[in-house]
Amino acid sequence: MATPIFKPSISHSHRLFDSLFFHTNLPNQVSIPKKRPSLSSASSELNPVRPEVYFCVGTHIIPHPKKVEKGGEDAFFVSSYNGGVIAVADGVSGWAEQNVNPALFSQELMANASSLVGDEEVDYDPRILLRKAHATTSSIGSATVIVAMLERNGILKIANVGDCGLRVIRKGQIIFGTSPQDHYFDCPYQLSSEVVGQTYLDATVSSVELMEGDTIVMGSDGLFDNVFDNEIVSMMARYVDVAEAAKALANLAHNHSTDSNFDSPYSLEARTRGFDVPWWKKIVGMKLTGGKLDDITVVVGQVVSS
Rank of each mutant, 00 (worst) to 15 (best):
T3Q: 14
P4F: 07
F6I: 13
I10H: 11
F22S: 14
L26K: 09
Q29T: 12
K34R: 13
S38T: 14
L39A: 10
L46W: 01
E52I: 05
T59P: 01
I62Q: 07
K67F: 14
E69K: 15
G71M: 10
V78W: 04
V78Q: 06
N82S: 13
N82M: 09
G84V: 04
I86Q: 02
S93D: 02
G94Q: 03
P102K: 06
F105H: 07
S106A: 15
E120D: 14
D123Q: 12
D125R: 13
I128P: 00
L129S: 09
L130I: 15
L130M: 15
R131C: 02
R131N: 11
T136F: 08
S138D: 13
S139T: 11
S139H: 11
S139G: 05
M149K: 07
L150N: 00
R152W: 02
V161Q: 06
C164A: 13
R170C: 02
Q173N: 09
T178L: 06
P180R: 07
Q181T: 04
S192N: 05
Q198M: 11
L201I: 07
E209S: 15
G219T: 03
V227G: 05
V227Q: 08
E231T: 09
I232Y: 08
M235D: 03
V240R: 09
V240G: 06
V242H: 06
A243W: 02
A246K: 07
A246Q: 07
A250P: 02
N255D: 14
N255F: 11
P265I: 02
F275R: 10
V277Y: 02
W279T: 09
I283K: 12
I283R: 10
G285I: 09
G291R: 02
K292T: 12
I296C: 00
V299Y: 00
V300H: 06
